[in-house]
């Protein structure tokens, strides 16, 4: 529960192993191909940033969900989306300020990061430790100066 993603873009080599790991980890819901993590350009040359759901404290996705399909998982701390409840109104996709609620066109499902039940595959497979999932103290969550 105290674990967080620790992202160090300066270590990211843009190999997209995390994307691949993510889409295979969630292949149980369908085919691989749609990842919930994105390796995007950081706005500078050769700087890549892995972007995924931040599991916000006061999450816009959950607030916007009118059928309460998105709730905090007390064990993992993730904002989990209940696919049985979801009515695919796309409110969460429009409301998330980080664009981390997605629509999977192939499966016709709204998807988002669920921290793989507490052990995210993306972080596990990162070859350079640019993306780690580990226990952190609150102080460490702030940018290191």
């Amino acid at each position: 529960m105290n674990s967080r993603f620790v992202v160090k873009p300066e270590l990211c080599i843009g190999c997209r192993t995390c994307e691949l790991a993510c889409s295979f980890a969630h292949a149980k819901n369908g085919r691989p191909g749609r990842s919930r993590i994105f390796v995007l350009g950081g706005g500078f040359k050769d700087l890549f940033v892995p972007v995924t759901c931040l599991q916000c404290e006061e999450a816009a996705c959950a607030k916007s969900c009118l059928v309460n399909a998105i709730t905090r998982n007390p064990e993992t701390g993730a904002m989990d989306l209940d696919h049985d409840k979801c009515v695919r109104c796309m409110a969460c996709i429009a409301a998330c300020p980080f664009g981390c609620s997605l629509f999977d066109e192939q499966q016709e499902l709204v998807i988002k990061c669920d921290l793989c039940g507490g052990d995210p595959a993306c972080a596990k497979f990162c070859p350079t430790k640019a993306l780690e999932y580990k226990p952190v103290t609150v102080r460490a969550l702030r940018p290191a100066i």
Binding site: F38, G41, G42, G43, L47, V49, G99
Partner: peptide
């Protein structure tokens, strides 16, 4: 939104 987040994190990095 994701691009925005990436460039913000890029700037911080």
């Amino acid at each position: 939104h994701r691009d925005e987040l990436a460039s913000t994190m890029g700037r911080i990095t």
